[in-house]
């Protein structure tokens, strides 16, 4: 069973990557966005986004989803960072899972953009992913895990 980091603990999980070759949803596999779209509204409670998918398509259905997985086919493709922030800013409250070929040293930024679950394809270094998830204790920008930029927190402390 694939390993997953969720709420800062390592656990096992049954979900497998989406099978894009099939029109149908395969059991235990995340649906792709086209598979999710084809299903009756509200019947599928998970979906896996790929780079290039239009996040706005999910806008009206965020309350019906328990897990949105965002896939990173290569570690250098950073579109998923913006997708995560966009989903959270649109009010998505469910699990937001990074899947694929990201590396341990990206978990910190992924978490700041709104991801709360991490499922790397190669899970042999899963402890390293956990270890790298909080390497900075301070940050300048507003982000999902810290909605106030540093300058506003500096001001609050000064007054």
């Amino acid at each position: 069973m694939p390993k997953l980091i969720k709420q800062d603990t390592i656990c096992s999980d049954d979900w497998l990557p989406a099978d894009a070759a099939s029109d149908q949803v395969t059991q235990h596999h995340f649906p792709t966005l086209p598979q999710w779209r084809a299903a009756a509204a509200g019947t599928l409670r998970t979906v896996q986004l790929q780079p290039g998918d239009v996040v706005a398509e999910l806008a009206g259905a965020l309350d019906t989803l328990d897990i949105i997985a965002v896939d990173f086919p290569v570690l250098t493709d950073g579109r998923g960072f913006s997708y995560a922030r966009d989903l959270r800013e649109r009010g998505y409250r469910g699990e937001l899972r990074a899947t694929g070929h990201f590396m341990p040293d990206q978990v910190h930024y992924l978490r700041r953009c709104g991801f709360d679950a991490f499922q790397p394809t190669d899970d042999s270094r899963i402890e390293e992913y956990l270890r790298q998830s909080r390497v900075f204790s301070e940050q300048y920008q507003a982000s999902i895990d810290q909605p106030l930029p540093l300058f506003r927190r500096r001001e609050a402390q000064a007054s």
Binding site: G78, F81, R112, F136, Y140, Q141, S143, P149
Partner: peptide, 13 residues
């Protein structure tokens, strides 16, 4: 500079 330094969303442009 401060806004762009270690910006989590824009490190893999």
């Amino acid at each position: 500079r401060q806004w762009s330094t270690l910006h989590p969303e824009f490190a893999f442009l």
